[in-house]
Simulated assay, not measured.
Amino acid sequence: MRSILFALLFVISVHGTAFAGDLTISVRNAAGQPVRDAVVTVRPNAGVPSGPIRFSWPLRVVQQNVQFQPYVLIAPVGATVSFPNLDRVRHHVYSFSRGNRFEIELFGQDQTRSHTFTTAGVAALGCNIHDQMLAFVRVVDTPWAGKTDASGNVTIPAIPAGAASLRVWHPQLNVRGNETAYPVTIGAGAGRHTIAGDFSGRAAVR
Score class of each variant (00 low, 15 high):
M1V: 10
R2K: 11
A7S: 12
L8Q: 08
F10N: 01
V11W: 00
V11L: 02
I12M: 02
V14T: 14
T17N: 14
A18V: 06
F19D: 14
A20H: 10
D22Q: 12
D22E: 14
L23H: 00
T24H: 03
T24G: 01
I25A: 13
V27I: 12
N29P: 04
A30G: 02
G32P: 06
G32A: 04
Q33N: 13
P34T: 01
V35S: 00
R36W: 00
R36K: 15
A38W: 02
V42E: 02
P44H: 08
N45P: 00
A46N: 07
V48A: 07
S50E: 12
S56A: 15
R60I: 00
R60M: 12
N65R: 11
Q67F: 07
F68A: 15
F68K: 07
P70V: 11
P70T: 09
I74W: 03
A75F: 09
A75V: 10
G78C: 07
G78S: 05
T80I: 09
V81H: 10
V81E: 11
V81D: 13
S82C: 02
L86F: 11
L86P: 00
L86A: 10
R88Q: 13
V89E: 12
H91R: 03
H92E: 15
Y94M: 09
Y94Q: 04
S95C: 05
F96S: 12
N100R: 10
N100D: 09
R101Y: 06
I104E: 15
L106Y: 02
F107I: 04
Q109W: 02
Q111D: 12
T112P: 03
F117H: 03
T118W: 01
T118N: 14
T118C: 00
T119I: 05
A123N: 04
A123K: 06
L125A: 06
G126E: 04
G126C: 07
I129R: 09
H130V: 13
Q132P: 09
F136A: 08
F136T: 08
V139M: 08
V139D: 06
V140W: 07
D141R: 03
T142D: 04
T142S: 14
P143K: 11
A145H: 05
A145T: 10
D149G: 12
D149W: 01
A150L: 08
A150E: 08
S151R: 13
G152E: 01
G152S: 05
T155G: 05
P157A: 10
P157T: 09
A158L: 09
I159V: 15
P160G: 07
A163P: 01
A164L: 06
L166W: 03
L166E: 04
V168Y: 03
V168N: 05
H170G: 09
L173H: 02
L173W: 02
N174F: 00
V175C: 10
R176T: 14
N178E: 13
N178K: 15
G187P: 08
A188D: 15
G189I: 07
G189C: 08
A190R: 12
R192Q: 14
A196P: 01
G197R: 10
G197Y: 03
G197V: 09
S200W: 00
R202Q: 12
R202I: 09
R202H: 01
A204K: 08
A204T: 11
V205Q: 13
V205M: 11
R206Q: 07
R206D: 11
